[in-house]
Design a protein around this nucleic acid. Structure first.
Lengths: 288, 288
DNA sequence: CAACCGCATTCCATTTGACGGAACGTAGGT
DNA sequence: ACCTACGTTCCGTCAAATGGAATGCGGTTG
């Protein structure tokens, strides 16, 4: 990680801007957040060097940030010179998750789906071009399908991701699909924009998206988008199972159930039920 | 190198010039964490000015941090110029909470307590001199007792706090109890170190602590500490109810149940069952 | 036993980005 | 049109972040 760009500082300061070209300049706070995220990653306590590698930061930098966080209760030194998430971070995490209205509504819906389909049910939200799993129904960690809370997959390789894409405004979909180098997780993963748009169109038509072993071999999933009162996508929920259990016939049966569950949650958020058959991507809200 | 915790901060900071006299100097990262915490606080989306007031930071500072966080997906602009926790923070939160072995074990135990006692059950950890609630059994938000995840109370005013204190090493207990100006939340709150030590002694003897309307009027709670394999306190769990429902007689009945639940969780963490009656506070583990 | 490696930690000169008072733009209320 | 409250931008000052190099530690190898 020898930072290359030498005179970058001049350019940056000249315009007083935080990004140059397509490369983003990282301030201390940005780096701290990287460290924080690496810290909370699945896989038990983490070593300093490991975090440094993951984040691409220098070891002293990571060390200093970890110490700062430890002083603030965001990190906690564990044995063997490792660090884990601290109590203050956990409190914050609990509060944040508790605040989410969508999640609150989704929880019982997930349990219901789990019970009625026999498959693992998940709720996920979007960050950039990835789907982030926030909650899964009591796992019965049958086979290690990586759907644990915190897990991230590219939008185009997983059911919940495709579900979200299927209800996003075209501009945003374009930003994701037209990015160069969409990687394939399996031999089945569609990576061509055209192919993906076809998949999305079908998902929009049906009201649920199907991941046919796009993300992992022998794993299928079915998911539907969750919308808020303004029609924006706030997340997606679905089920996920081994391909020979969650076979095409099951998909046909469970798809509508997943769709109904997602609509129930959406309705709880004040969303209007969509006109039948037709999905109209809502306008993108805001601008601060 | 082991030495310690005593004047560690002074030594470290004096050299680093991070603190002057009695006042602690806060770096940008520290401030960012304050902002982050204020952001995730209960009470829906927060306004910039509100966060600035809560954290004592200047408005431009908060604004800059919020923008940085928004760029990183840690914050998310909501309507009306407010901000809420962003998807990346939620993912991190979900992962962090999912990682906690203690929490994983505590969850079913809480549900069980809830069902058998009819009262709200909570699991909490310690941060500095406060107890932080991480999880509560499906609330049945009967009366708005503030035990929602993320809620914080001083250790000496709540059941879980007292439970943790009752099993902490004397040095740490002293650091909390001998601090000047322990505030009383109700007329019943003990604030004198001597009185508190008596309460703790009784709690240690029984194996569970009782909060007799110390934290809020008409609210009682019963809690017991959760220990890890090295005998250190990792948290506490208990029940919490209105005083005239959770009356002294009930306390006598439920106390042992709470104690048993906490011991089950402790055992799951590898803790040795305590010698009967006698509680021996373990050595504080410390530095690598 | 010494040489070696990987790791966490400390040091320090360099410079980058954080800071916050003041100014600006914009509602919303009287 | 006046005022207050808020979010936002500007910019000169200066404190804090940075990372290469050095140190110390524990384990593995020749």
């Amino acid at each position: 990680m020898e930072c290359g760009w030498v005179k970058l500082s001049d350019m940056v300061k000249a315009v007083n801007t935080r990004s140059v070209g397509r490369e983003v300049v990282k301030g201390p706070v940005d780096k701290a957040m990287e460290v924080l995220e690496a810290l909370a990653r699945p896989g038990g306590p983490h070593r300093l060097g490991e975090i440094a590698r993951r984040t691409g930061l220098a070891k002293p930098t990571v060390h200093r940030h970890l110490r700062t966080m430890a002083e603030n209760g965001f990190a906690e030194p564990a044995e063997g010179g490792t660090y884990r998430a601290g109590p203050r971070l956990l409190g914050l995490a609990a509060a944040a998750l508790n605040e989410s209205r969508a999640l609150e509504l989704a929880r019982p819906a997930l349990a219901d789906l789990r019970q009625r389909t026999g498959h693992v049910a998940v709720y996920a939200v979007r960050h950039a071009s990835e789907a982030v799993c926030l909650e899964q129904s009591e796992p019965a960690r049958e086979y290690r399908m990586d759907t644990r809370p915190g897990h991230r997959s590219p939008l185009h390789t997983c059911g919940v991701g495709l579900a979200m894409l299927s209800a996003m405004p075209p501009e945003d979909v374009g930003a994701v699909l037209d990015a160069p180098g969409l990687d394939a997780h399996t031999a089945h993963t569609p990576t061509e924009p055209a192919a993906l748009r076809a998949v999305l169109a079908q998902a929009a038509l049906r009201g649920y998206a199907v991941d046919d072993e796009y993300d992992a071999p022998d794993v299928r999933s079915v998911a539907a988008p969750v919308l808020d009162a303004e029609g924006r996508v706030v997340g997606a929920m679905g089920i996920c199972g081994l391909a020979f259990t969650l076979d095409p016939d099951s998909v046909e049966v469970f798809g509508p159930m997943v769709r109904a569950a997602a609509r129930t949650v959406s309705a709880g958020l004040g969303a209007q039920p969509p006109a039948l058959g037709v999905v109209k991507p809502a306008r993108r809200g805001e601008g601060r």
